[in-house]
Design a protein around this nucleic acid. Structure first.
Lengths: 342, 342
DNA sequence: CTGAAAGCGCTTACAG
DNA sequence: CTGAAAGCGCTTACAG
């Protein structure tokens, strides 16, 4: 059966399509009587406006795009949930793409979304991404772009982040406070801003507390799907190279959990011989043994805020108002658990 | 700056819009010379067809909808990844909605997707869903619908599933094989087909092996965000009520992990005093201690297969061919780990 | 208060 | 080989 159109309603009521359209949109210049008739028939026929036609006319799709490095990931899936929840409230749909931490894919996906004419894009960058032209292109084409978590400072757009440096400082300071003297750091890969910032926070905490920074105590792990194994691997290296380390601040919980498993295997006691702080507060961190101290990173809220900001910008663009780029910094929190409980 | 349209190319080359359109779509009735000119100019101007117009004309959106009970979930996020990966290969985008295990929300979301005129819908049902009219409506409106994992047997459409009964049978049989005599079952809520099937598989395995089925050994847990706590709670009950139980087959890994944590707290040795098998092979199950034996459920593959089938049906509908509903049953696998290693 | 008309940007059956 | 024309279903500025 054919879907009901404005024409069909107009024909049945012997009025014009124009009037039907206006009646349904509650324009003030339609008589109450006509409005009532139109509405009644529309609901009887179960009329639904053809979105394709509406999109073409209004030049908006009520759909936004989301590009994310990995989907199967506690933090990111929480962000997705937050974005979708908030978008739904405003009648927006969310198209999701996974960049797989690849710059090339990310570029293609931006293109794809632009061609699809989504009303805006939310993105967390791939580790690989060093060039940002595909992002500035979005902005200069007049579509709003909001970055979260893995951002590029240099790109002029709204961002939703945490203060990675401060959070890392706090985590490291916590290790110092409980008496650690020689503190290692398992960091993320070299490019992403937040992995840099966490490293800087670590180093500053050492410095401010009179502990010498020793580069040989910093281990890099390429945090992808193999995070857990990276944690184990770095732990084995650490055990060979630096027996004297008594605390580690680790870039991500999953890596930290790998480290814990390896220390347990080696018979090293946590936290007595080595204290550990992770980052992100992955659900699992609270249920493993020993439970992992970590920094709580508000994924769900980050998603909500990212959409809220994007929505504001979509409205501004519609009204031809200038966009006011915002940098939204969400609070983190140190959660102390067994891995640092002395 | 205004996006480039067919008209612009036509004007610049002094030919008709019709010819430009045909040239770009490589129609055979355009001269090679014209084609070349058009293509060259199109690429110079960076012409992108206006998707809104194309959608309206062709009456398809190259977008599908996905409704899923929960996003932050190891199994489901793997399915999402599989669907998106496969969709991208065919040039389709995926709009994702979360039903939150609520039938009411699920209904609204189906409506929303239908109004948006997605080309098809993939769904895993909410626990709540008992009435299926919203689903049969999709099918009778001529849009393809594919269900996966949490399905309704009664709805006539394609389905991608595992053989839950067989997998549960295998899990229970494994407990019997390692010597368990009194086997409990932590099942999921009463409605979902797969929770019923897993229960039936459990019961049949007992029956086939001469073990009396005792209903008081079956505990129900409402598996939502609180799965872990449900596992702990049921374990406490079990410890009070049935000290003699020596094996449990548990509906979901997360519940099983909750159970393990509670048994450890109570000083009950796993697997010596009680052996445990979970279901789904959540990533965490391999890294906890003791590691959890479980049934591997292929989420990523399930997502891929679901999209493949949906795509086939979209093609059939386009060609006005009859749709051939398929029931695709993917293989599961028992993974033995420490929790059943005797 | 109502409606004829233009137009969003494309596709395609048809005529020449 | 090329193009005029109709049409997808809606919205809205304008005339009456």
């Amino acid at each position: 059966m054919k879907p009901v159109t404005l024409r069909e309603i107009a024909d049945q009521l012997n009025i014009s399509i124009t009037t039907v359209s206006k009646a349904l949109k509650d324009y003030p210049d339609v008589s109450p009587k006509t409005k009532a008739q139109v509405r009644e028939l529309a609901s009887t026929l179960n009329y639904k406006p053809n979105t394709f036609a509406v999109n073409l006319r209004t030049n908006e799709s009520k759909t936004i795009g989301l590009i994310i490095p990995v989907i199967v990931h506690h933090f990111f899936s929480n962000v997705i949930k937050g974005i979708i929840a908030q978008a739904e409230k405003k009648g927006y749909l969310v198209v999701i793409l996974q960049s797989n931490e690849s710059y090339e894919l990310e570029k293609k996906q931006i293109d794809l979304l632009m061609n699809q004419r989504v009303d805006g894009i939310i993105i967390s960058l791939a580790n690989d991404t060093v060039d940002f032209k595909h992002l500035t292109d979005v902005i200069s084409s007049g579509k709003p772009l909001v970055m979260f978590d893995k951002i590029a400072k240099i790109v002029n757009c709204s961002k939703v982040i945490i203060d990675d440096r401060k959070a890392a400082y706090e985590a490291t300071k916590h290790l110092i406070d409980i008496g650690c003297k020689r503190i290692a750091h398992f960091r993320g890969s070299l490019l992403p801003q937040n992995s840099i910032d966490r490293f800087l926070g670590y180093r500053k905490a050492l410095f401010d507390n009179g502990i010498a920074y020793d580069p040989s105590l910093v281990y890099i792990c390429e945090c992808d799907e193999k995070s857990f194994e990276e944690g184990q691997k770095n732990t084995r290296l650490l055990l060979e190279q630096h027996k004297d380390v008594d605390g580690i601040f680790i870039n991500t919980d999953l890596v930290a959990i790998g480290a814990i498993s390896e220390f347990k295997k080696a018979g090293v006691k946590i936290p007595e011989e080595i204290a550990i702080v992770g980052f992100s507060n992955w659900f699992v961190s609270s249920i493993i043994s020993p439970s992992l101290s970590t920094i709580k990173q508000p994924g769900f809220k980050m998603g909500k805020e990212a959409f809220k900001q994007l929505y504001k910008e979509i409205q501004s663009i519609k009204k031809n108002e200038p966009i006011d780029f915002k940098q939204i910094v969400l609070k983190t929190k140190l959660i102390q658990r067994e891995s640092t409980k002395i």
